[in-house]
Deep mutational scan, measured.
Amino acid sequence: MALNTPQITPTKKITVRAIGEELPRGDYQRCPQCDMLFSLPEINSHQSAYCPRCQAKIRDGRDWSLTRLAAMAFTMLLLMPFAWGEPLLHIWLLGIRIDANVMQGIWQMTKQGDAITGSMVFFCVIGAPLILVTSIAYLWFGNRLGMNLRPVLLMLERLKEWVMLDIYLVGIGVASIKVQDYAHIQAGVGLFSFVALVILTTVTLSHLNVEELWERFYPQRPATRRDEKLRVCLGCHFTGYPDQRGRCPRCHIPLRLRRRHSLQKCWAALLASIVLLLPANLLPISIIYLNGGRQEDTILSGIMSLASSNIAVAGIVFIASILVPFTKVIVMFTLLLSIHFKCQQGLRTRILLLRMVTWIGRWSMLDLFVISLTMSLINRDQILAFTMGPAAFYFGAAVILTILAVEWLDSRLLWDAHESGNARFDD
């Protein structure tokens, strides 16, 4: 018995066209964080690309023209004298008006014999932002004059995390709450300039795509075929072959399989920071003279006294001054041990922890910024005066060393310790 099946006739004509040209192939790229070699397709503007294995951002879609970056830099340069030299806060102490600005706080630190601690604050609040705007201006002028731009481009990517104007702005709020127990506070004209400078700096850093600047100024022929001998440069993120001198053909720094002496430098910085954190938390970090009496505060006791007036601000200072430094030390110690013992479990967790400490590390400088600003506000000789204690130097040095330890660690070593050939990683 035959089955009668109805015929289905399409209502619209289906047209099949042959592909007349070869589909576009992607360029081969190595991930600078996990060293995976993959094919990167062509990316349009405002599109980002991520590593298929570790999800690290390979290409950032946010990109401004150099002219727009230069305009932002010149605007920031105009704001800087007002943000640093004009009063941020006014207080009335014992019937006398006192003005506080950024430069005055750094000068008070240096004047009291601790120039190293003052230079830490100076670099993060004044030096690094000033280098940022002058570097962008150098790129703008240098591109037109045919100057060598490689050193500036190499420095810009590392400079971003040292620009800490946003953290200093939080420190202004913390210092205001600490001082309000002794005097009446009012915002100064410099505060508005400083807030504007923070906003412009944040926007500029978020749109400063150094890798795209490398592509514009020093374009290189990408690798179009897969080759395990391809290496990625950690300076400019170019994937290719080393030249005859073993250097990256684009930025001219040595092109090595792994960062040289990464573990040794990381261990040295980490152990030194552990040693410095002990006096930083045991010795007094601030000293207040009130009517001839002397009151010393460690980091913890200062947080407890701050909690009596504002528990939320005390929580912020606790996280930045105690929780973050010790968390960074514990995480980095764990990561280094996992590399030495070739741990194969929990790779995803370790990668996330490394990215976390990379982002939060700079916030530990908050305590030094609060001390710097408070020193310029309260300084009335023996009637009422505020000065920093010996722990300030140890704390600042420990924070900087932990930042350097994270920067010096080559994250690809975590993958080397893991089993080879993993296309995915999980716990």
Rank of each mutant, 00 (worst) to 15 (best):
58 I>M: 05
381 D>W: 06
230 L>D: 14
56 A>H: 08
329 V>N: 14
74 F>T: 09
312 A>Q: 15
203 V>F: 10
116 I>G: 06
149 L>V: 14
1 M>I: 01
344 Q>I: 13
88 L>A: 03
10 P>W: 07
388 M>S: 08
329 V>H: 08
311 I>W: 15
39 S>R: 08
252 H>R: 09
224 T>S: 13
194 F>L: 13
359 W>P: 01
111 K>F: 02
103 M>T: 05
151 P>K: 01
148 N>Q: 06
354 L>K: 10
359 W>R: 14
366 L>V: 09
167 I>S: 02
117 T>Y: 02
62 R>L: 06
87 P>C: 08
86 E>I: 03
385 A>W: 01
280 A>M: 13
272 A>E: 01
393 F>C: 12
364 S>Y: 00
391 A>E: 02
363 W>V: 02
355 R>Q: 13
419 E>L: 12
79 L>T: 03
239 T>P: 10
413 L>T: 10
309 S>D: 13
64 W>D: 03
167 I>W: 03
135 S>E: 01
141 F>Q: 07
31 C>G: 00
34 C>V: 00
17 R>G: 09
419 E>T: 08
386 F>C: 00
77 L>K: 03
151 P>G: 03
273 S>Q: 05
84 W>M: 09
163 V>P: 03
56 A>G: 08
67 T>E: 04
327 T>F: 09
125 V>D: 07
423 A>S: 15
187 A>D: 09
95 G>H: 06
319 I>F: 14
238 F>A: 10
255 L>A: 12
253 I>L: 10
307 A>D: 02
331 V>F: 10
195 V>W: 05
351 I>K: 12
401 L>M: 12
255 L>M: 10
152 V>E: 02
39 S>V: 11
90 H>Y: 05
181 D>Q: 02
114 D>Q: 05
398 A>M: 02
235 G>W: 03
153 L>V: 11
226 R>L: 14
289 Y>F: 11
107 W>A: 09
213 L>N: 15
87 P>R: 06
23 L>N: 09
250 R>V: 14
107 W>H: 15
108 Q>R: 07
55 Q>T: 07
137 A>V: 06
245 R>D: 11
380 R>D: 00
70 A>Q: 11
347 L>K: 11
122 F>T: 10
333 F>T: 12
254 P>E: 11
320 A>D: 11
313 V>Y: 09
411 S>H: 08
412 R>G: 02
41 P>G: 04
360 I>R: 00
235 G>L: 02
121 V>T: 06
154 L>F: 05
164 M>Q: 10
138 Y>E: 01
352 L>Y: 10
370 V>I: 05
174 V>R: 00
182 Y>P: 01
262 S>G: 11
138 Y>A: 08
408 W>P: 11
302 G>D: 00
214 W>F: 15
230 L>N: 14
54 C>G: 00
168 Y>I: 04
295 Q>E: 04
358 T>K: 13
94 L>V: 03
111 K>C: 03
72 M>F: 02
213 L>F: 07
135 S>L: 02
396 G>L: 02
63 D>N: 14
47 Q>W: 05
330 I>P: 01
303 I>S: 13
182 Y>I: 13
214 W>M: 15
44 N>A: 07
413 L>V: 10
336 L>W: 08
100 A>L: 02
244 Q>V: 09
30 R>N: 04
151 P>S: 04
166 D>Q: 15
48 S>N: 15
327 T>M: 14
38 F>W: 04
130 L>C: 15
228 E>L: 13
411 S>G: 06
145 L>K: 05
321 S>R: 02
173 G>R: 01
395 F>W: 04
246 G>Q: 07
164 M>F: 02
349 T>E: 11
372 S>D: 10
112 Q>G: 09
26 G>Q: 06
175 A>N: 15
184 H>E: 04
170 V>F: 15
316 I>S: 13
363 W>T: 04
393 F>L: 13
216 R>Y: 13
110 T>F: 01
277 L>K: 10
365 M>L: 04
73 A>N: 08
396 G>R: 00
410 D>M: 00
231 R>W: 07
227 D>R: 13
26 G>H: 11
138 Y>F: 13
208 L>K: 11
246 G>Y: 13
207 H>V: 11
240 G>V: 08
326 F>R: 00
252 H>D: 10
197 L>S: 05
335 L>A: 09
11 T>P: 08
398 A>W: 09
335 L>E: 09
354 L>S: 11
57 K>L: 07
177 I>C: 13
332 M>A: 08
161 E>V: 14
159 L>E: 04
84 W>E: 06
89 L>T: 07
142 G>M: 08
32 P>F: 07
417 A>S: 13
310 N>T: 14
253 I>N: 06
203 V>P: 15
415 W>Q: 09
132 L>Q: 04
138 Y>R: 01
62 R>D: 08
317 V>F: 08
301 S>G: 07
181 D>K: 01
422 N>I: 11
117 T>H: 02
376 S>Q: 05
290 L>T: 03
69 L>D: 04
278 L>G: 13
303 I>H: 01
208 L>W: 10
62 R>Q: 05
1 M>A: 00
52 P>K: 03
175 A>I: 02
111 K>T: 09
257 L>T: 13
23 L>S: 07
413 L>P: 06
291 N>K: 13
